[in-house]
Simulated scan of single mutants.
Amino acid sequence: MTVIDFTAFIGRLATASGETILPFFRTSLSVDNKSSNDFDPVTEADRAAEAVMRRLIKSNFPQHGIVGEEFGNEREDADYVWVLDPIDGTKSFIAGFPIWGTLIALLHKGTPVFGMMHQPYIGERFSGDNGSAHYSGPSGERRLSVRRCASVKEATVFTTSPLLMNPDDRARFGRIENAARLSRYGGDCYSYCMLAAGHLDLVVETELKPYDIAGLIPIITGAGGVVTTWDGKPAQSGGRIIAAGDPRVHEAAMKLLNA
């Protein structure tokens, strides 16, 4: 069974999750905190969207594994594993900003082979299979391609928030921020998609979980970009992540991070 066999099904997952989430967006929904030390919000929309995707996967591919943010892991040693983040950017979601999306990844023997970011409120989908990446939305459909950027001083760099980093990592990120042409905060999954679309050059994050990044890797690499950990290892397990549109700016940023 090849990746292309799953393309239509991934679209079904995105549609079903979006239809589940949208009735909750910009309403007076209740918010729970999953963390005892910080604010890690979860809503009924997160849970409902993951539940509907899990039901579809189990009914169509009962032999596959599932890794999800809200309901844990099942059969994660299977050849094919789905990695789900029903709402990446829940803090933006509860604040009414549409800078969030549903992340869906398909792993084959541990490697992300297809990924999608779906933003149902705006009606945008970014997808990739490592070999190519595509956009579908109100402005039509097109192939995604990163832009050239030779150095950090020419780069636009994003992170969700430096306050999410520990002091040492924040200082290391600061080397990139101080050298870059422009730095901006916010974005969550959208930052990576804008990198794949050629609108920015670097995304630098820490403390990511597998479901935060797995669905974005095939999009970035399919558009011609690079995504690794800060020490140059594969990114699908999460942790400290750096994504770049151009290998040259990735190398230069890595040197600053690890100076």
Rank of each mutant, 00 (worst) to 15 (best):
R148M: 04
L200H: 14
E50K: 01
P167C: 03
V113S: 04
G224C: 06
N73C: 13
N37G: 13
G96Q: 11
I21C: 01
Y185G: 09
F24P: 02
L106D: 01
A48P: 03
D85N: 08
P62E: 13
K34V: 06
V249G: 09
K233P: 15
Y185I: 13
I242W: 05
V249Q: 13
S59H: 09
G123H: 02
A243H: 08
A95Q: 10
R172G: 04
E76R: 12
S151E: 06
L84H: 07
T102C: 07
F39C: 08
G68S: 03
K58A: 08
T27G: 05
I242H: 03
G96F: 07
V152K: 02
C149R: 08
S145K: 06
V203A: 06
I87W: 09
L106N: 01
R54C: 08
A133L: 00
E154V: 07
A243W: 04
R55V: 12
P210C: 03
M53N: 07
Q63K: 12
D5L: 13
G174V: 03
I219E: 02
S92M: 14
G225Y: 00
G239H: 10
S28M: 05
G131R: 15
L164Q: 14
P41V: 12
L13H: 01
L182N: 14
R184A: 05
D88R: 14
E251D: 15
A179W: 03
H108N: 15
S30K: 10
H64T: 09
K58F: 01
P247G: 09
S145F: 04
L257S: 12
Y185F: 14
L22Q: 07
P41Y: 15
N37V: 15
S139N: 07
V52E: 00
G18V: 09
V31A: 11
S59P: 04
N166C: 11
I217D: 05
W82Y: 07
V249T: 15
F173S: 02
L22M: 14
S145E: 11
D129L: 12
R184C: 01
T102F: 03
A105N: 10
W82K: 08
I241D: 13
G68E: 02
L202H: 12
A14Y: 00
L56G: 04
K91F: 09
G174N: 02
H118M: 04
Y211P: 13
T159E: 03
D77V: 12
S28Y: 02
A8I: 11
T2G: 05
W230Y: 13
G89L: 11
D169Q: 14
H64G: 01
Y121S: 13
F9D: 00
F158A: 13
F126V: 02
P112F: 00
Y211Q: 07
L163T: 04
L256P: 15
S151L: 07
D46R: 10
T221K: 11
S161G: 11
Y190I: 13
S237W: 10
